[in-house]
Each structure stands twice: as C-alpha cells, then as structure tokens.
Amino acid sequence: MNAPLAPNALVAEMSPVSTSDQIATMKTALLKNIQRSAYVYRVDCGGCNGCEIEIFSSITPVFDAERFGIKVVASPRHADILLFTGAVTRSMRMPALRAYEAAPDPKIVVSYGACGCTGGIFHDLYCVWGGTDNIVPVDVYIPGCPPTPAATIHGFAVALGLLEQKLKAETHVEAAGEAAALPHPDIPYALRVRLEREARRMAGYRQGRTIVEEFMALLEGHARAPGALTLPDRMTAAVGAERDPRRAEIIGRLAEVVQRTIRGEAP
C-alpha cells in the first residue's frame, strides 16, 4: 500500500540566487571607491545568537567598528553589507531571502560564523539547509564559532577590500621517508604514559601537556648530564623553585609517579 519513499525525493533542490554581470561590475565599482560608511544589516538565519553577541561587541567602544564607518542598521533597505549569521534553517530560509531581495544592489554578502559558512556543527540536521552560500551568492566568509570581534573587523576589512585574506588552500603530500618523530626516546614508554596521564588528570590536556613536557625535559636533562644532584633531589628542587602552588603540586605528583615507577610499585 505504502510505496517506499526515496530519501532524495524528500529533499527540495532550490536553485541559488544568481547575480547578473551588471550588478557584479557595480559591486566592484562600489568596492573600489567606497567614499562613505558601509551600512550593515544583520540577517539571523537561525543561529544560536553567539554570533550576534560578537557582532555587537565589535561595535562597542573597545573594538569600535564604527571608526571605519561600519554601522549596523535596522532595515535591509539601508544596507550595503548583509551579514548572514547562523545555519540556514528551513523556516528562516524565506525571511533570509526576503531580506536579501529587499537590500538595494550592489550589496556585499558576508557569511558570518561557522554555521553561516558551511552549516557548522548543525550541517547535517534535518531542518538545516546548509551554509548561506546555498541560498545567496556570498562574497566573504568569516569562520569562527563565534568569530572574535577582532576577526569580525578583519573580515569586514577583507569584504571592503582593505586587507588581503591570509588563508590559502594548501595540500601537503607525504614526502618519501617522512616519519613522525618519537617523543622523548630516552624516557621509558610506560613511564611516559603514566606521567602524561597524571598531568592530564591534574591540569587538563593543554596545560597538562605543557607541564609534563617541562617535567620530561627535566628528566631527560638528568639522563644526558647527571650532575652532582641526584634525580630525586633535582625533582625536589624543581618543586621548590616553582612559585605557582598549583603547578608545584602537579610537579610534586609527577615526581612521585617517577619514584613509584623506579621502586616498581603500581601507579
């Protein structure tokens, strides 16, 4: 009775809006000699409002995008730049298109945030159309989740042709004989794993890694040049020299791990 439905039949294929050549030349002319303020209209296509907070913090006195004439306006009819934030959701697609149509030509479309660029973390949701470029032609992409106010200003500068983009597509091809270096070959693997685990448990992956790297450099230094001080003394000295009590605690624990491993006890 119920015929099986092909999943593709449920997806509506919409043709993206295309711009004519005349508008393109008008846009380049606008970018070349923009002698006035650039008015920005913000179109929320269904984001989490993190991007909006960053946009408003970039027009606060600290970052002050208004010193470049970038001004957020309340109507798309006043806008030169349309700022699309958030992944294009099914229900916000039409309002977003209406805002695009309402803005006078030539207009610059900026896709803002990870969701605006590609759909971001919501890219495979049932109600998400994808990035802004699926519905309107986009001039500049500003990635970030959300982009910081400084990244926002950089993005506007790229959109207005004041700064060059820094990112370029790159492909690395593995060279012959390329090998990943083995970290700390002088330290036994079992001990290294124990130290890394303890440091990560105490301080998290980022600070933990920094601390354990410092600590292992200390151990390796001892292995290479065993001076007058014994290893336990050296570790005690390192704990004593540490001014941050939290780091001193962690380094003390790492020293304990080394002692226990030397004694052959379970960690």
Binding site: C117, T118, D133, V138, D139, V140, Y141, I142, P143, G144, P147, T148, A150, A151, H154, G155, V158, A159, Q165, K166, L167, K168, A169, E170, T171, H172, V173, E174
Partner: peptide
C-alpha cells in the same frame, strides 16, 4: 593564536594532507 580566517572563496578554507 591565529584568528584572521576571513576568505573570499570557500575553497581557501580547506587544507589537505595526503598520506600513503
């Protein structure tokens, strides 16, 4: 610490590495 990621074309947002 690099945050200046704005690009004009979407292809510039990808980076690849090929391994054997």
């Amino acid at each position: 610490a690099d945050f200046e990621l704005a690009v004009g074309s979407k292809a510039d947002l990808t980076r690849k590495a090929v391994f054997t």
